[in-house]
Design a protein around this nucleic acid. Structure first.
Length: 883
DNA sequence: CGTGTAACGTA
DNA sequence: CGTACGTTACACGA
């Protein structure tokens, strides 16, 4: 609007490093980083700026130039050139490479050349463009002002990167009192601390401007050097050679031999799915992605234009009677709306869409008896149904007395297997992620519902089912999906619906006891601190008491001060005993127990049972997670903790609880994956693993492995599964780093297969971009190739752990399916899964049978090179059933 | 009121 | 400077 359009093509040249750096300092690094620790603030800021400029300037040709390293022809002439610059901050590392990758994905040319700076590339291209192009140079480096002319404008960031100042010849003149050609003369004379170019004493910006203006150029000034009076004049005469060198360095190279010219810098058409994948990797939202994508030519542009007229999902709503419509449908996408709370769900409305995208939308309250019965019968039949988050739908329908069967697709699960570790798998997000189309979320309130809103959701599920199926097949994960994750959906739904019985009285009695204890510890601690309103839960207040009132030695630093974690307090108590510390630690434990108990009591439903939700799409490794409440972290290690466990009891009509767990499953998976002969032998011989490993590592007979040695070996064995370092081991064991290193070396010497495996896993993952479990479950770890050391090492440890933890997760999922099948026809039922443990509620008379089913089916879940070991316990409550 | 951090429970 | 989670409470900024 308002811009004079010329017939000339528009050329945009960006100094990539310069602008990345500006972006880096414009946005706080700590607010932009991926879950793996790679900072992305410069990437984000750069792309945001790029989107703005592209939209504003609408260039026909674009290139972004980058420096290659520090060494250039300039440093050869003048080794001090830019030598004072410190290494870029750690947080900046890797971001330039990420920017280049995104630019390439966007179809924008990037250029760099050994021995030259980005300046020279830009200067050469802009010179080649001459008057034939309207050229825009984007940079935070004022040396570029020498390139400004009638057809070349420099866009220079003023504050942050959002406001760009336009330097035309007039603007340069106005700001510096010099012409663009005079600018490099001025810069050479003034010197430049940022490039480490020396200045002339007594000659600053003012004098430099005056002299250059007076004599027209540096050459003119040098010719008349003898005329200049005063100390400044003498200083200049003394340093003419340095100034000449400055001028030489400031001069940009305008005649590089580049393999491309301005006309070669057109956009390549960006593939929006690839752009989406890049942005997902960087964990950027869809907002920036849309802005950037819309600023460049891309494949979905045509679709998007069409989409403005027609909705993305195109479904025909019909008014065929329900029962008739359902006849001989092969597959149907189902979208259910309602409340998916386990044990308390309800369905309000649903939509059905068939494979020809013909659909119905039904409010359940409106159905007549015949249709109601037909619908229920169909939902409970084996007829294949495609859903998104089928477990929630199961609970909704369960509220209407319908037990959903025939779950043939769950597009949330499919999306999870394709891209684990995403923050959300909501239908609209998955739709956007995998089909690059947008879908409005359905209104939750029934009264506000459009006539076809639910049908659109079901249509999206139908579309996604086809797309995700082929994507899963491409990565050989379709069987994992159909044979493992999908069958688990209804098993988990039934577990959640069953819930686990608790003894409310026991929980409340325990809670009251802990309240007493908490109050007592709090009173004592407040008295000692001399502050009767001290909040022991406030790290801030605690720091004040510990390090100011009591003046104790400082603990480990945290972001907000000094740590008040139990571990640190314990250390403090060991070196500086103080009753306040004892009360504090006691308070911590009781307080934790108290809140755990209060949380649990709140979640008891009217049936006297707690119904957790198992999430199947949360973890990046393949484990389940448990929420509302989390029943996978109920205390067990302390006596007080076991008391809480004892409140989880066998329900009415049932006889007992059985728990069955895999012993050392991750170590066994490690033995299998590493194929280490030593570990395999230990398990095959049925040795106590840690004693066996201890005897090898410390070179003593098995029966001479002391408890202390065993403890160290155990810590190390488990640590290795997590990517433990020698330093970490020394910290955990409280031994010198040297000693820890020796133990690890000795371990790797005796168990070379483990060492080889762990190294290999990272190498392979770096090459592939992902790790795989025995069952083919992938975890993508792009940050293995990050330049950011912290991010990269985090990813390496994740790569070590993912195949092991993930395979163990796969195994127990297989076991759950087998156990569920074996329990068919019996009244006993699985209630909980805690990663390597199943909790079963046993009906009268079925104890022995259930026990043998668990032992058999869990054992047969997979055949590894080492045996699995399942241990089973039985009792009236969860604690008593432990073993 | 929502968001981030510290702390701490589990496998 | 050991992986994977969820919940609680506090502190802070909109």
């Amino acid at each position: 609007m308002g811009r004079v359009t010329t017939s000339q093509p528009r050329l945009l040249l960006i100094d990539g490093h310069s602008m990345a750096f500006r972006a880096f300092y414009a946005l706080p690094a700590e607010n932009f980083s991926t879950s793996g620790g790679q900072h992305t603030n410069a990437v984000y800021g750069f792309l945001s700026m790029l989107a703005n400029i592209l939209t504003e300037e609408k260039p026909d040709f674009v290139a972004v130039a980058f420096d290659v390293g520090r060494k250039t022809f300039r440093t050869e002439v003048f080794p001090e050139y830019k030598a004072q610059r410190e290494a870029a901050p750690e947080e900046f590392r890797g971001q330039v490479e990420l920017i280049r990758e995104v630019l390439e994905t966007l179809g924008i040319t990037t250029l760099s050349r050994d021995n030259f700076e980005a300046d020279d590339i830009v200067a050469t291209l802009s010179t080649q463009a001459g008057a034939d192009y309207e050229t825009f140079l984007v940079t935070g480096d004022r040396d570029y002002l020498q390139l400004v002319d009638d057809s070349t404008t420099v866009l220079y960031p003023m504050r942050g990167v959002s406001k760009l100042h336009r330097f035309t010849p007039e603007a340069v003149e106005e700001k510096y009192g010099l012409s663009p050609e005079q600018y490099p003369d001025f810069a050479a004379l003034r010197g430049d601390p940022s490039d480490n170019l020396p200045s002339v004493p007594k000659v600053g910006e003012k004098t430099a401007t005056k002299w250059i203006a007076q004599y027209g150029s540096l050459d003119g000034l040098i010719e008349h050097a003898e005329e200049i009076k005063g100390v400044a004049g003498q200083n200049f005469r003394d340093r003419i050679e340095q100034v000449k060198l400055n001028r030489q360095l400031t001069q940009m190279v305008t005649d590089m031999d580049l393999e491309v010219g301005p006309a070669d810098l057109g956009f390549k058409v960006a593939v929006s799915s690839e752009v989406a994948a890049r942005f997902d990797e960087l964990e950027f939202g869809t907002n920036l992605r849309e802005r950037v994508l819309n600023a460049v030519p891309h494949d979905a542009a045509a679709e998007a234009a069409a989409a403005e007229e027609a909705p993305d999902v195109s479904v025909t709503v019909v008014d065929t009677p329900l029962a008739e419509w359902l006849e001989d449908k092969e597959h149907v996408a189902v979208f259910v709306q309602g409340d998916g709370t386990p044990g308390a769900g309800d369905a309000a409305a649903l939509a059905l869409v068939d494979s020809s995208f013909e659909g119905l939308q039904i409010e359940l309250a409106d159905l007549d008896a015949a249709d109601d019965a037909a619908l229920a019968a169909w939902l409970e039949s084996d007829a294949p149904k495609y859903l998104h988050e089928a477990k929630a739908a199961w609970h909704m329908l369960s509220g209407r007395g319908i037990e959903l069967q025939g779950i043939a697709h769950d597009t949330a699960l499919a999306a999870y297997l394709l891209r684990p570790g995403q923050r959300t798998y909501a239908l609209t997000d998955v739709y956007q992620r995998h089909l690059q189309k947008s879908l409005g979320a359905a209104t939750e309130q029934l009264s506000l519902l459009d006539d076809n809103q639910l049908v659109e959701q079901a249509g999206a599920i139908m579309e996604l089912a086809a797309e995700l199926t082929s994507q899963l097949q491409e990565i050989d994960s379709f069987e994992l999906y159909t044979d493992l994750e999908l069958p688990l959906v209804s098993i988990l739904a039934r577990m959640e619906a069953a819930g686990i019985a608790v003894d409310r009285d026991v929980l409340e009695t325990q809670r009251d006891a802990f309240i007493e204890q908490v109050n007592e510890q709090e009173r004592a601690a407040r008295e000692l601190a001399g502050d009767d309103s001290l909040n022991l839960n406030s790290p801030k207040q605690l720091q004040a008491v510990l390090f100011e009132t009591f003046d104790m030695p400082k603990t480990k630093k945290t972001k907000t001060g000094y740590s008040t974690a139990a571990k640190e307090i314990e250390q403090l108590a060991a070196t500086h005993p103080h009753p306040f510390l004892d009360h504090l630690l006691a308070h911590r434990e009781y307080q934790k127990m108290k809140t755990t108990l209060e949380g649990l009591i709140k979640t008891i439903q009217p049936d006297g049972r707690i119904h957790t939700t198992f999430n199947q799409t949360v973890t990046s490794t393949g484990r389940l997670s448990s929420t509302e409440p989390n029943l996978q972290n109920i205390p067990v290690r302390t006596e007080a903790g076991r008391q809480i466990r004892s409140a989880f009891v066998v329900g009415e009509g049932y006889e007992t609880l059985i728990t069955a767990d895999y012993s050392q499953i991750e170590m066994r998976v490690m033995a299998h994956l590493s194929a280490d002969p030593g570990l395999i032998e230990a398990y095959r011989e049925g040795e106590d693993l840690h004693n066996y490993v201890g005897s090898k590592v410390f070179d003593v007979p098995v029966d001479e492995v002391t408890p202390e040695l065993r403890r160290r070996v155990k810590a190390m064995s488990y640590g290795l599964v997590y990517g433990l370092s020698a330093y970490g081991l020394s910290q955990q064991l409280g031994i010198p780093a040297r000693e820890a290193k020796e133990i690890m070396e000795s371990y790797f010497e005796r168990f070379g297969g483990v060492k080889r495996y762990l190294d290999e896993v990272v190498v392979q993952a770096r090459k592939d971009g992902y790790t795989s479990t025995v069952f083919g479950r992938r975890r993508y770890l792009p940050e293995l190739n990050s330049d950011n050391r912290v991010a990269r090492e985090n990813a390496e440890r994740a790569a070590l752990n993912a195949p092991i933890q993930g395979t163990a997760a796969d195994i127990i999922k297989v076991a759950m399916i087998r156990v569920d099948k074996a329990l068919e026809g019996m009244a006993s039922r699985v209630l909980l899964q805690v990663h390597d443990e199943l909790v079963v509620e046993v009906a009268p008379g079925e104890t022995e049978k259930v026990q043998s089913i668990l032992e058999r089916e869990m054992d047969k879940a997979i055949e590894l090179t080492v045996p699995l070991e399942v241990s089973v316990g039985e009792g009236k409550n969860w604690d008593a059933a432990a073993h």
